[in-house]
């Protein structure tokens, strides 16, 4: 089975941890323990193909700016999250793509832009169009979701899997076509 390492990035308070928790623990667990080895691992089936995601969520450690490089280095796909209720968090991630590309040393990095907390539409500060525009400039997909209401959460993670599959295939193709030439 394929295994992917996904890094969740974004400022503090955008609900990253809630998003991850919602994804990795869809059932109610009596003893909830994030310190166990496979806590952040989950199997997901996308387009008939099962794969395992290992999530690295940076929630709680956003202050450790010196560690961001390492997080990015460890990841294969990136879920960049902002909160639709805060313009500031949207602003914070504007140059995230450039950072990821720089660390990974390649333009072809699977990224997904996510606007969280869409259940709080009455407090919305970032319009869907703004999110979409940024995603277009990054040439990556975009979703809005609500971790609280479990709305679009699995879709989000399925989307990043598709993106990773797509980028992998593309680079494989380009390699094979290079070798052909």
């Amino acid at each position: 089975m394929r295994e992917f390492k996904v890094v969740v990035l974004g400022s503090g308070g955008v609900g990253k941890s809630a998003l991850t928790v919602q994804f990795v623990s869809s059932t109610f667990i009596e003893k909830y323990d994030p310190t166990i080895e496979d806590f952040y691992r989950k199997e997901i089936e996308v387009d008939g193909q099962p794969s395992v995601l290992e999530i690295l969520d940076t929630a709680g450690t956003e202050q450790f700016s010196s560690m961001r490089d390492l997080y990015i280095k460890n990841g294969q796909g990136f879920v960049v999250v902002y909160s639709i209720t805060s313009q500031q968090t949207f602003h914070d991630i504007r140059n995230m793509k450039e950072q990821i590309v720089r660390v990974k040393g390649s333009e072809n990095v699977p990224i997904l832009l996510v606007g969280n907390k869409c259940d709080l539409s009455h407090q919305r500060q970032v319009r869907s169009e703004e999110g979409l525009a940024l995603a277009e400039s990054w040439s990556c997909p975009f979703t809005e979701c609500s971790a609280k209401n479990n709305q679009n959460v699995n879709v989000t993670f399925a989307e990043i899997v598709r993106e990773m599959n797509y980028v992998q295939n593309k680079s494989r193709q380009s390699k094979s076509c290079c070798s052909l030439m």
Partner: peptide, 15 residues
């Protein structure tokens, strides 16, 4: 302390 903060964040978010 980063991992401790991360653990606490997830315990908070998950319970």
């Amino acid at each position: 302390i980063g991992i401790i903060l991360q653990d606490l964040t997830f315990v908070h978010a998950g319970n």
